[in-house]
Nucleic acid binder design. Structure first.
Lengths: 276, 276
DNA sequence: CGGGCTATTGAACTCTATCAAGCGTTGTGG
DNA sequence: CCACAACGCTTGATAGAGTTCAATAGCCCG
């Protein structure tokens, strides 16, 4: 599919000086100036968010608090890197607010997009990667707040709260099923269909509907879509142009709105459900 | 890649009457006639195998025994189906002896091969698939012995032995990393390289070396290799023919021997390591 | 206002799927 | 035990989806 080196594929990520601030769970006084956005009662708000995280379902308030206090809070602007492929994997993350993407690149400069991560999802979490290295790079798409646990805290947590381990097992299982279904898709469907599916998944997961259609709530470039579907931005551009001319969609710079999902669905047609 | 319906893709699996015999863990007297292969001390032998299963690392003898006694033993000939895609997922499995392949097919009749399973590996185990259905079909490649636990037994086990849950987490994580790396491969590498990688993985995992090279220890057809790499048996055949003419390999009916892995490695060349 | 990004589009090219046909082996049933 | 069917493999020819190459145009931010 993507064959050889194309300069377009080398995406220059802006490596803003990592304005990572570690914040002891319940020590708001440690906040640094750039954290002005954060009100002092952040604790309670984060805790409420935390309660919605699937990974922590089944924990009662006290346990949640304990989990929270073992965490480190990091705040990022848009387009910052949370961790980079190949780095030592010390932290496991949960996204509280914002949006980020997890991408993997091959040594020859090609890139694929593993997934977009939304609020309350865990990421970078394949606990103790055997290699002890992150297999992918996580980059924020919008300003984000993440909680992180280091190896020790994580193991502690898993030991104290077996329920969390079970949740993790379930979530990893889902993830695995999704990746497998994506693999099947990549191996058997043609590009247009893959793009349609990807778009549908994005709108379903994070679409903002208004009178004239559903728009993806965060910026997605053609290249992103290409990396997501295993093709090139050129092909994606052509396809979207076609759809736009048909009036199926509306799109601009890193912006896509689907007018009529049912049309896309018929392009993606198949009995097979879209996983996730 | 694989575009439209090709009769070749509809692989007629021989659905032998499932000669599944359920055997209470420690009740050898329940064995049915077809189990003549099995000596009476099967218990101890299976137990020893069980001790080597990564999923059960860290359990002591008593616990292993408990785990074993919660299991059901099933024996299969070659080319039998253990579970089928879409069936209700009641059982989780560990392969004790033999070899099997796990394949997924899309509604339009295309097929991909998720993985080959060797002794001591777990499969069909993404505990409690959310859908409660197996997402793939497992077929024996050689005569095999599997142990199975039903949902209840499994949860019991996870509850009694948190260590098993942690092991499972680690194994799933590895699995996920492998699938992701395979996805990256499929999206970015061309066919020849993918085939070379697949062959190398097979020989490394289950190669029998002799004076003139390394042979894959179980039957692998061109179609299998194609399903494994997301291409067609035609292309695989052409590629292998080429390599054979170069003297890199030697191959027959469902039989492949690699003379010089280093040559294949240079075809698959890249700094990227072959995940598993 | 200029310099990056991002997107659009045309044209050429090529990898690989698809179509088609044939061959040797295995194994099965008469 | 032989014959025939099924299976696995090989190979040539053809075509097409989608990558690659190239060039341009619009948009956003500093």
């Amino acid at each position: 599919m993507v064959r050889s080196h194309s300069l377009y594929q080398f995406r220059k990520l802006r490596f803003a000086a990592p304005s990572v601030k570690k914040v002891g769970g319940s020590c708001p006084e440690l906040f640094e100036p750039e954290d002005w956005r954060v009100p002092l009662h952040v604790d309670m708000e984060d805790l409420r968010s935390l309660a919605k995280v699937p990974l922590f379902q089944g924990l009662d308030a006290d346990h949640l608090r304990a989990v929270y206090e073992g965490s480190t809070c990091k705040r990022k602007g848009a387009n910052e890197v949370v961790f980079r492929q190949g780095q030592e994997a010390r932290w496991s993350y949960v996204l509280l607010r914002g949006r980020l993407k997890v991408a993997q690149s091959s040594p020859d400069g090609h890139q694929i997009l593993n997934r977009y991560v939304g609020p309350e999802e865990m990421f970078g979490c394949v606990l103790l990667y055997k290699s002890h290295r992150y297999p992918a790079t996580a980059t924020t798409v919008s300003p984000s707040v993440v909680l992180a646990w280091d190896r020790d805290a994580l193991f502690c947590m898993l030991e104290r709260f077996p329920r969390v381990a079970l949740n993790a097992l379930e979530l990893l299982g889902e993830e695995l099923a999704i990746v497998r279904s994506r693999y099947l898709e990549l191996a058997t469907e043609r590009v247009e269909r893959r793009v349609a599916r990807a778009l549908l998944r994005l709108t379903e997961k994070s679409g903002k509907a208004d009178g004239r259609g559903v728009e993806i709530a965060f910026p997605v470039s053609r290249q992103d879509l290409a990396d997501l579907t295993g093709t090139t931005l050129h092909t994606v551009s052509r396809i979207l142009s076609g759809w736009r001319q048909q009036g199926w969609i509306e799109s601009g710079r890193r912006r896509i709105k689907v007018h009529d999902p049912s049309v896309l669905r018929s392009i993606a047609e198949d009995d097979r459900p879209l996983q996730a």
